[in-house]
Design a protein around this nucleic acid. Structure first.
Lengths: 256, 256
DNA sequence: ACCTGAACACCGTTCAAGT
DNA sequence: ACCTGAACACCGTTCAAGT
């Protein structure tokens, strides 16, 4: 199976569930015999649960149906394709990002909090990251996140035409950073070793080789910390860089 | 098929071709009857060609074998799994990143050039991005790229313990940015519309909705440019932010 | 040493049929 | 309206067999 991606495996070239006709559940209203009935929400919830526990590669429509105690094809009554279902699951967990807006707070703190929360999402659900790259990511929750980020960033004093670039910087950096982080974690889990052990192992095979001499001072400046701690440090420093950069490039007239 | 990812589809939990025993081709030396023979390099080259032309989702071992005029299973003589093959293809194209090092040049220019070249790789080969997230990316060419980036960054005057965070910032931002870019391009190509048409279409469905009022000034500041131009602008501004941030956070003693 | 064929255990999805 | 069964056209990979 490996790293399949791309869309259009089934021939049709849809762009997004959210941009097509039917973002709402098919029929609702009278269903007195509910309870054990299928349901779009139940399907999406089960999808998220399966993706969390077994990963994207092991997820299949048949596996999902089994989990729901139903035949493989029943799911297709509620969802057009596997892609659409994954897109729904993606937006569902995107709702987990914390979005309390406090217009009185420092925009730097707010931006940091947002980035940290977003990173958390990608690390807790490692399957989110490949799907974000795969789909357009224009579901309601995704739009809410970018909306908040945009408003926070605006308070920094950047000019309107500077905002998209700055937003992309913070957003894509966090995405890329947490992607690697989540993948690495899952790799280690699959291989049955701790992240720290694996890190030490890699360092071990590298230390001898002369081409890595020039980075010895970096490695030595980081001994004694766990991989987790190191990453949190790196992430924080990168955010500091971004914020410092924004502060030095924003329109001088609006300097606070 | 959709967005498969994750490793270990076949059960074994390998971490990387490069970290296992056999990075070099199996046997070489006497092969007088070559020419139409299979060969690891030929296999990887054909893989890259197929991935470029048809995308990751449509790539399969059987499809590859057909392309090579050979039976499906012949490939397995040279390569252990599909994952390994994809990892080899990934590192092969990573070699396309331009890496002329000029210790005399301004580190800012060098960093920009490196990021632009790296972005180019991801946009030209949209299948690279999901694979980078998927694998550990520790092939020789990948290591060469990070090596150069690290040396350039070092000339900025950052302290050793600041380097990993700064490297992650530039690297992951570029990765994330180009990932979205490449995906969007391929989506449009698959749907048979130009990126500009699709952009206009999205804007069209958004303009009316009141929740997008607050970003109207941003959209108005960007009319008349192509999607391509806008993205190049955003990318450049983000890089400026990063560089400005590094300059303001580097150890004062080494200020140039 | 290198390549093939048949087979296994999977996929996503269609379609006609059941209730 | 909702669910099922059988079927189609695929997968990656194993394994015994050919040359």
């Amino acid at each position: 199976m490996a790293a399949g991606a791309d869309s259009g495996s089934s021939g049709r070239a849809r762009t997004s569930v959210w941009l097509e006709g039917r973002p709402a559940p098919k029929r609702r209203g009278e269903r007195p015999t509910g309870l054990d009935r299928l349901d779009r929400d139940r399907i999406v919830a089960a999808t998220v649960r399966l993706l969390d526990s077994e990963g994207l590669a092991r997820f299949s429509m048949r596996r999902l149906a089994a989990e729901l105690g139903v035949t493989a094809m029943s799911v297709y009554w509620y969802v057009d394709t596997k892609d659409d279902l994954l897109e729904l699951a993606l937006d569902a967990v995107t709702g987990e990002v914390e979005l309390e807006e406090d217009p009185g707070a420092d925009w730097r703190d707010q931006l940091r909090e947002l980035a940290v929360s977003y990173r958390g999402l990608l690390v807790v659900h490692p399957w989110v990251s490949p799907l974000m790259g795969e789909y357009l990511n224009v579901g309601p929750h995704a739009l809410a996140v970018t909306g908040v980020a945009q408003r926070v960033l605006r308070r920094s004093g950047l000019a309107p035409e500077q905002l998209p670039g700055a937003l992309a910087l913070i957003y894509q950096f966090t995405y890329g950073f947490a992607t690697i982080e989540g993948r690495f974690a899952r790799r280690c889990a699959d291989a049955g070793i701790s992240q720290d052990d694996f890190y030490r192992q890699v360092i071990g095979t590298i230390e001898d080789r002369p081409e890595f001499d020039e980075t010895r001072d970096i490695r030595e400046s980081r001994t004694g910390a766990t991989v987790e701690e190191l990453r949190t440090c790196d992430f924080a420093f990168a955010l500091d860089c971004v914020i410092a950069g924004i502060e030095s490039l924003r329109a001088p007239s609006r300097r606070v």
